[in-house]
Computed example of a mutant assay.
Amino acid sequence: MDAGLDRSTLVIAAPILGGLAALVCALGIRALHPLLVRYALARPNARSSHTTPTPQGAGLAVVGAVVGLGLIAAAVLGLPLDTLLVLFGAGLLLAAVGAVDDIRPLPALPRLAGQILAVGAVVGMLPEEARIVPELPALIERALLVLAGVWFVNLTNFMDGLDWMTVSQFVPLTAAIVLFGVLAGTVDAATTIVAALLCGALIGFAPFNRPVAAVFLGDVGSLPIGLFAGWCLLQLAASGALAAAILLPLYYLADATLTLFLRLSRGERVWEAHRSHFYQRATANDLSVSAITNVVFALNVVLAVLAALTLAVPVPPFQAGLVGVGALAVAAVLRLFATGLPK
């Protein structure tokens, strides 16, 4: 817990800030909508699940709510401003890269350079004693964390290809981290507040993105969301809750990573647009968009419960068993998406 911020204050502040983020985000999307219709239409391509041009860029409101209210919270609650300035600055860098890419697609290298810079800045501000796998040399661990962070930012973007998909993944994930911080003190106040703000902002975005979506996040939103959520998970892992940090994003990790390796095995150009993700294949197997996102949401609630159990019973064999149960649940959903319902 951050100095000067007791648990009772956090219990009150987290839901209030989450509610404010939802309101600010919803109002921001309403204000931005005419501009997005005019300048940022997403036209259907090989990756798209929509069939008509739809405005994208609502992520501006999500990121704006998180950053704006996060800075206010830092000033009022005494959160570590230096840490949040680096995190939010890195998020705004990714938002800028994503905004340009939404309007006029960028080459892969400039995009990757911006992502490495942003993730590297966030990983670089970790204190020396913050270790995930102490058996590894610190420099190697940090390099692997940057690599993992860049992949998490990208997979968040890749998985944002269906109405309500990002909401179904990150609302349960961030809500769980808020509860871990408020009820158990597993993560510090800054992480708890960032998770609450991101959760609230996505709830404010949800009505506009419900199937059939009136607006999309765009890369301007999906890239920073991946960074903010990844930072929260990193803080969770650094607190000693590695099993929980693995379980919470396990569906996204499995779908995106397995899809990447399957495409590589087929010799495909993995940097090009596609519709090979398991959740995308589910639409071809006669599952509706709402059914898919409802399954993903329910799966993430189950993963959040398993993550909570790893914190309640911090015995390594038990935690490993819960991760295995989570992996089986994810595998069952991936199989459902790949094959469809039994005829």
Rank of each mutant, 00 (worst) to 15 (best):
L198P: 12
F170S: 03
G226P: 12
L179A: 14
P207V: 13
A206E: 08
F228M: 07
V215G: 03
G161V: 09
A195Q: 04
V220W: 01
A213R: 00
L162T: 12
A206Y: 07
L183V: 13
V187F: 01
A195V: 08
L155K: 13
D163Q: 05
T166F: 04
V187R: 01
A229L: 12
A196Q: 02
V167R: 00
L179Y: 05
S168P: 13
I225M: 11
L223H: 09
P211D: 14
Q169N: 15
W164G: 14
A175W: 04
Q169W: 09
D163V: 05
L223A: 09
G185R: 00
N157Q: 11
S222L: 00
I203F: 06
F216P: 10
F228G: 03
W164A: 13
N157H: 12
A184H: 04
N209F: 07
G221W: 02
V178S: 03
A175F: 11
G200R: 04
I225D: 05
F170H: 12
F180A: 01
V178L: 01
T156F: 06
L183I: 10
I177R: 00
S168M: 07
V171K: 01
F208C: 08
T166C: 10
G181L: 08
D219H: 08
P172G: 11
A190H: 02
T192L: 05
N157Y: 06
G221K: 02
